[in-house]
Each structure stands twice: as C-alpha cells, then as structure tokens.
Amino acid sequence: MMTGVAHLPADVRASLRLFAFYLANGTLDLDLLDGFDYRSTVFHSGSSLEQVFAIYTNVLEVDPDGNVLNEGDAQYRAAQWIRRCCDPTYRIEPPFQAWETELHGP
C-alpha cells in the first residue's frame, strides 16, 4: 500500500517562486547587485544557476510548521555569490561555509 507523498510546504514553495522571479527579473537584492546585470553571468551556464539555487536552499530555514524563517538571508547569500561572479574584487563577508555551497543529489 502506498502512502501519501509529502510536498514542500506552501511557504517554501512561495519563497522559491519569488526567489526565481527576482533572479530572472534582474531584481535580486538590489542593494547588493544594483548596477550589475548578472543574468548573463548566472544564466550562461547551468552550473552557475545550480550554485545559486544550492546556496539559496541550503541557507533557507524552515520551522516545523513549514514557515520560512530567513528568506532575506538566503537571498542575500545567493546574491553575494552572484556579486563575486560579476565583480572579482567583491569580498564575501562572512566567507561561505562548506554547507552553504554544497550541491546535493545525484
């Protein structure tokens, strides 16, 4: 007998949708990325886009009820990685920890 399939909580799905919208629209963290048209850099290769989503989802925190707790922090950390790709002189503070940039899956 098959049991029900678990889905991401609605708040997490909404957070991912908005992140993808801001990213594709060129409006992710305007304070940090203002003046950088990062889309050509991020969308040029699948691995860049993959890393952006990995950072966002690794940093994203969700409470037991499925509510997103730190959407702004997750967006900011992803934006820092993007800024570094566009501006090699940009210094990421604090530096990324290994868990933040880890790629999961097959």
Rank of each mutant, 00 (worst) to 15 (best):
M1D: 06
T3A: 10
G4P: 02
V5L: 06
P9W: 00
P9C: 05
V12L: 08
V12Q: 13
R13F: 02
A14Y: 04
S15E: 03
R17Q: 14
F19R: 07
A20E: 15
L23T: 03
T27Y: 01
L28M: 07
D29T: 07
D31R: 15
L33K: 08
L33G: 05
L33S: 11
G35L: 14
F36G: 02
F36L: 10
F36W: 07
D37R: 13
Y38R: 07
R39V: 00
S40R: 15
T41L: 09
V42W: 12
V42D: 08
F43E: 12
G46W: 11
S47N: 07
S48N: 14
S48V: 08
E50I: 06
A54L: 09
N58W: 00
V59I: 15
L60N: 01
E61Y: 04
V62N: 01
V62I: 11
P64M: 01
G66H: 01
V68A: 03
L69S: 02
L69W: 02
E71T: 00
A74Y: 00
Q75M: 14
Q75G: 03
Y76Q: 11
Y76P: 01
A78E: 08
Q80A: 11
W81S: 03
W81I: 04
I82E: 05
R83M: 14
C86G: 10
T89P: 09
Y90I: 03
I92V: 15
I92P: 12
E93I: 07
P95M: 02
A98I: 10
T101W: 02
T101P: 01
L103E: 05
G105K: 09
G105L: 07
G105A: 03
P106C: 06
